[in-house]
Amino acid sequence: MLARPGLVSFDYVRARTPGEVVQLLAEHGADARLMMGGTDLLVRIRDGAVRPRLVVDLKHLPGMRDILYQQQAGLTVGAAVTMNQLARHPAVVAHYPLLAQAANSVASYPLRNRATIGGNLCNASPCADTAPPSYVLAGRIVVHGSAGEQEVAIADFFRGPGQTVLQPGQFVTAIRFPPSPAAASGRYLKLGRNKAGDLAIVSVAVLGFPDASAPSGYRFRIALGAVAPVVLRVPAAEEWLAHHPPGAETFARAADLAAAAASPIDDVRASADYRRAMVRTLTRRGLNAVADTIAAPTGSA
């Protein structure tokens, strides 16, 4: 119930190679916890929610704090890249502004100096700010384990609140994003109880782009945060948008479909009713804002 005044003691290892991590995890099993920025882990240790004997710091592994961008290959973000790094990186701001917006909405500036995208995703909180953008940007999680490296689509990564597909001995080294579709525009809208520093009670990521193969001429991707055990894509709304001309009515209908798809809970932060209603508001606002900036379509004020 009451948080401790300080941390209980544990051993700390700053890992130098992925192999060392694999070995430590094999030796210590459930007694070991992986750490990047520590903004969640250390608080959870203080709260007594987890009591590791060993904390393995991953952020000094080679490449973990690098951001690489190539026009053909897309973006690779090291798992230990901090939110402030991500929010300000020229390539991210230029080509994946949605991701920059989400990173910049996390907690407060000092926390964003420590909090990492990898930590944000691996905690698997339904309200993780970088998760909904990762869905609509088709992110792939790079997982390292004893068998080497593999990639997992973000949609397959989360299992439930606090749960991912990571097996014992595995850890995340990077997140990869393919090049954004041509002329794409994205928005991340987050509602907290106050304007700065809060966790999302609802968040919505919207990505839109022209696509001649869609009957409406556009494709939209919508991902919802904090309204289900894991981030939700809304295929019904995306389908509707592909088949109906962009505009206020279409967006309102899509927002209704998004609200219907959400399965929020009542908790200390908000009621399910309010969350569902805010999915509608934020989705509609996100669609309108995105439509305004993709191809300046008419009738979508």
Partner: peptide, 13 residues
């Protein structure tokens, strides 16, 4: 009983 869920006004609010 923590700043996570007891929100107070910030400068921007």
């Amino acid at each position: 009983a923590s700043f996570v869920d007891y929100r107070i006004m910030t400068a921007v609010d």
